[in-house]
């Protein structure tokens, strides 16, 4: 039709290759700084705050990897993290070395996710969401019943593991999860997932096996959630089913991504910071109103900010900035 350029210019594969690299570098730098904190003499309160930001961030990215890319909302990530917690404590109590215990936790969680995956991923989006909600309940009920999990009285980690180890591990997982998300979004897998999210039928017409990809993504997402849960299990050292498998955690995983921006690597970062900050403020100002405030925040963002904080900021920046032909959306 017209003169064709034989070779694609470098970096035309998808937008923002350079901004991606900058973002990843930034995340690593911030992560390194965070990791250094215990030795810089900051208060343990501040360290706890950073820990929780990393914790919710990591879980949010795990959720984001599945639900942000596929549009299938999962309410099971809290339960998946819980499975990781129980698996790691049981393994450590069984005298397995730390590295192996973490691997066991990830594998256990992935195995559990395959159960939901094989059953629920054939369903329409909303039915899948319910299935994950039920999974959460089911796991809670089972854990209370099964003998080796210590039942309602809880499970205790025998070893004394210094808190700073859990702290460092959680920051590492948070950084790794964020980078994993950013890389996946750009990869063929990420592109195909977003194609499925855009138009599942048209995606099938170009050879995409949506069920298989959804399962792969869900398992990967679950594995990360399992690791996050495992590290947290080490952090708290005593596991009570009602707490560990409370649906609250699944809500937080979701809220963190939603507040910051679903489907972007930066979203859960903003979301985790906002959530933890807000929670601390509410604790002081109006304890007991915690749920109401979070609910109203979420409602406000959905109604007025549409995609979350990060894209909203991006729109603001691009409107004030130059008139480039590409929209101002970031990673």
């Amino acid at each position: 039709m017209s003169d064709t350029v034989m070779n694609p210019p470098a970096g035309s594969m998808s937008r923002g290759n350079r901004s991606d690299a900058i973002f990843i570098a930034g995340v690593i730098v911030v992560g390194a700084i965070a990791m250094a904190q215990p030795w810089l003499g900051v208060s343990s309160y501040f360290l706890t705050l950073i820990y929780y930001v990393a914790y919710y961030l990591a879980l949010g990215q795990a959720w984001n990897l599945m639900s942000g890319l596929t549009g299938y909302v999962s309410f099971s990530h809290g339960a998946l993290a819980g499975i990781g917690a129980y698996a790691v404590v049981l393994s450590l109590n069984g005298n397995l070395p730390m590295a192996l215990a973490l691997v066991v936790a990830a594998i256990a969680t992935v195995a559990a996710s395959l159960i939901i995956g094989a059953t629920a991923l054939r369903l329409r989006g909303t039915a899948f969401t319910f299935a994950t909600l039920f999974f959460q309940e089911l796991v809670l009920l089972l854990v209370r019943k099964l003998p080796f999990t210590g039942g309602s009285s809880g499970l205790i980690l025998y070893q004394i593991i210094p808190v700073w180890i859990a702290y460092v591990m959680m920051v590492t997982v948070a950084v790794a999860a964020t980078i994993a998300f950013a890389l996946t979004r750009r990869s063929r897998l990420g592109i195909r997932m977003l194609a499925i999210k855009s138009d599942e039928s048209a995606a099938a017409a170009i050879g995409i096996d949506s069920t298989r990809l959804k399962i792969i993504l869900f398992c990967a997402s679950a594995g990360i959630a399992g690791l996050v849960g495992a590290v947290h299990g080490i952090f708290v050292a005593t596991l009570y089913p009602e707490v560990i498998f409370s649906v609250d955690l699944s809500i937080v995983a979701l809220a963190v991504a939603l507040i910051g921006g679903v489907g972007s690597a930066a979203g859960p970062i903003a979301g985790a910071i906002v959530y933890v900050g807000l929670r601390e403020i509410v604790q002081v100002v109006a304890p007991g109103a915690h749920l109401v405030i979070i609910g109203l925040l979420l409602l406000g963002i959905i109604l007025f900010l549409r995609d979350g904080i990060v894209p909203a900021v991006g729109r603001l920046v691009s409107r004030k900035g130059s008139r480039s032909s590409t929209s101002g959306r970031q990673s």
Partner: peptide, 17 residues
């Protein structure tokens, strides 16, 4: 039925050879 969430190039890259 384009994939509106993707770029033009990504629309093509989504195809499985």
């Amino acid at each position: 039925r384009p994939f509106r969430a993707l770029t033009v190039m990504e629309n093509l890259l989504a195809a499985v050879p």
